[in-house]
Simulated scan of single mutants.
Amino acid sequence: MPDAQPQENTPLVSVLIPARNAAATLGETLDSLLAQSYRDFGIVLVNDASTDDTQQVCASYIRRFPKGRLQVLSGLGNGISAALNTGLASIKSPLVARLDADDLAEPLRLERQIRMMDRNPDWLLCGTEVSVIDVDGQVIDHMECPRTSVETRKRLYEKCCLYHPTIMFRRDQVERVGGYRSHFDGAEDYDLYLRLLEHGKIGALNERLVRYRLHPGQVTANKDRPYRMVADMALLCALARMHGIAEPCFDSISLSDDIALALRAEVQEHGFSQLSPKVARHMAKRIKKANASLEKIKGLLFHTNATAGNIKEAAKVLLV
């Protein structure tokens, strides 16, 4: 489907950046946008209740961009989804590119993604591969994406395989599915991808167009990986929608109280029939690691695999 034409003085794409206490890295992030080969873009930066010098860094960069192209909004500190929705509400551009306040866009990033979205009007979202950098900006690794939209779809129904700071999406389509959902904070991107898949295609450029910074404060750096359980719940919600079942009813409070219990209850009610054996087994492992009893779940998982003839997976259940 073609993008709506931007209004006069509205850029084709806006870069959406949530920032909370990001003064140490934000300048480098904005410098990477100043170096973009594609110039018709705006920036909507949500200063999400920062207590450091983030606001001062923003102010120092406003004049370095064309007039009106760097817009700084104030967030209430209610989490990343709330901050992103605050930014989205002010964006008129047909395309939105995400970037975090500690990551860097390669000079060709916007140009390449806009071209890909133009060539694939049925794509609702496009990600890229990333170079992983450490706190000092040194490249230490890289992460790849699936090579086709078909493979991306398959992988997304197993796990999140796209990197949030790399994505570019069609604003009207994200608005259509309701934007970001706060009770999935930590896996808010994965929940969004799964909802978009119900309306169109998602793909990725197999180029490293973002430098993704790893540091100890990240949600995904938590060794106990509670965000993975939130992602598990997002996947169960997507499978429920796919099969005409009401989404599990839960909120951020119940999840924060005990995500393992919420996940266990949902799996016990619906079983593992819609999950791949490998995904189901890893889900059960995460529930066990969180010290939630899973004997009934192990029974369901063993029975489902044994009945289907998945003897190897059934045997692995005994080790969970």
Rank of each mutant, 00 (worst) to 15 (best):
R241K: 08
M242H: 10
S256M: 13
S256H: 14
H243M: 03
S273E: 09
R281Q: 12
M242F: 05
K288Q: 05
H243I: 00
D257F: 15
L255F: 12
F250Q: 12
A280N: 08
K289W: 02
I245W: 08
V279D: 01
S256Q: 14
H270S: 08
M242T: 07
S256T: 13
A240I: 00
F250K: 15
A284R: 11
E269A: 06
R241T: 00
E266L: 04
A246R: 13
L239D: 01
L261D: 15
K285W: 06
C249K: 12
L239Y: 05
R286Q: 02
S252Q: 14
D251W: 11
H282F: 09
S256L: 14
L263K: 02
D251A: 07
E266C: 10
G271H: 10
R241N: 04
H243V: 00
K288Y: 04
A240S: 04
F272D: 05
M242P: 05
F272I: 01
C249G: 07
S252P: 02
D251Y: 07
E247I: 02
A240P: 01
R264D: 00
A260P: 01
L275N: 04
A280P: 05
Q268A: 10
H243Q: 02
H243R: 11
S276K: 09
E247Q: 11
V279G: 07
S254P: 05
S273Q: 08
S252H: 12
S256K: 13
S256D: 15
H282S: 11
R286K: 09
L239T: 00
S254G: 11
H282L: 10
K278L: 08
S252K: 13
G244T: 00
M283I: 02
E269Q: 10
S256F: 15
K289R: 09
D258C: 15
R281M: 10
M242G: 09
V267D: 04
A284H: 05
A262E: 15
S252Y: 09
K289P: 00
K278C: 02
S254L: 14
V279T: 12
D257G: 04
L275I: 01
I253T: 14
H270Y: 11
A262S: 15
P248Y: 02
R286C: 00
A290C: 00
P277W: 08
A246Q: 08
K285Y: 05
A240R: 04
R241H: 05
A284K: 08
H282V: 03
L261V: 13
N291W: 03
A240Q: 05
L275Y: 09
M283R: 12
A260K: 12
I259E: 13
S254N: 13
S256W: 15
H282R: 10
A246T: 02
A265I: 03
A290E: 01
R264F: 05
K289D: 01
K278W: 04
A262Q: 15
I287P: 07
A290M: 06
I253V: 14
S273P: 03
D251L: 04
P248T: 00
F272V: 06
M283H: 07
M283T: 03
A262M: 14
L255T: 14
A290F: 06
